[in-house]
Amino acid sequence: MSLWEYANPVKFMRTSRALLPWFWGLTLVSLAVGLVWGFFLTPEAENFGSTVKIIYVHVPSALMAINAWLMMLVTSLIWLIRRHHVSALAARAAAPIGLTMTVIALITGAIWGEPMWGTYWAWDPRLTSFLILFLFYLGYIALWEAIENPDAAADLTSVLCLVGSVFAILSRYAVNFWNQGLHQGATMSLDKEENIANVYWLPLVITMVAFGLLFVTLVLVRTRTEIRARRIKALIARERMG
């Protein structure tokens, strides 16, 4: 019994079918608890009023936007090294979810930014990094869509994910450097976690866990879809061969 048995599509389909209801349940419960607690049961912040509560969507989605890419990196590596198709398909399944999380983080950030700093957008290092992450996701997904041969697509997107990861880290560093250089003193800090009061902290942790569960659930669902789609493609190809 090794972990790699789950890389077998049959085994994966069977296990994920059994697990999915549990994941859905846990996701919905934790989301409900975290969001209701965060939105309605926490006091309003002294300076910012109720706007601060968007943190319960903003921070978890930003967290998952990065984690989705990390997951794609790991699954891409597994595909390149061990050639498990489920791994490649899981990477493919995670990308649109990561993209969505990135967009949610950007939009909620903009909505939050307006009352906080009086602007929807600033070329703050973090904001810029997320915009770049957004572009990475777009390119990665577009490459998957563009290539006909599924194995070649898995290989090429994995190579892109690997190279992209290095450049993403480099970009993060570069962007930090760049903004300090051009707008000294004008940078706005998003590091609210440190000075966040305890009343806000616990529901935030719960929503972070909830978004993590939501991500895993969606990845499972989408990977199952990708496996089925891949299976159909293989059957059609075989049919054509006669």
């Binding site: 190279v163 450049f167 480099l170 970009s171 450097f177 760049w178």
Partner: peptide, 22 residues
Amino acid sequence: LLSLLVLPLYVPTLIFGAELVA
């Protein structure tokens, strides 16, 4: 597609290049 793939990869080079001149 090529432009889309390459663009984010160009960011660090562009930043450091322009920064060096500035």
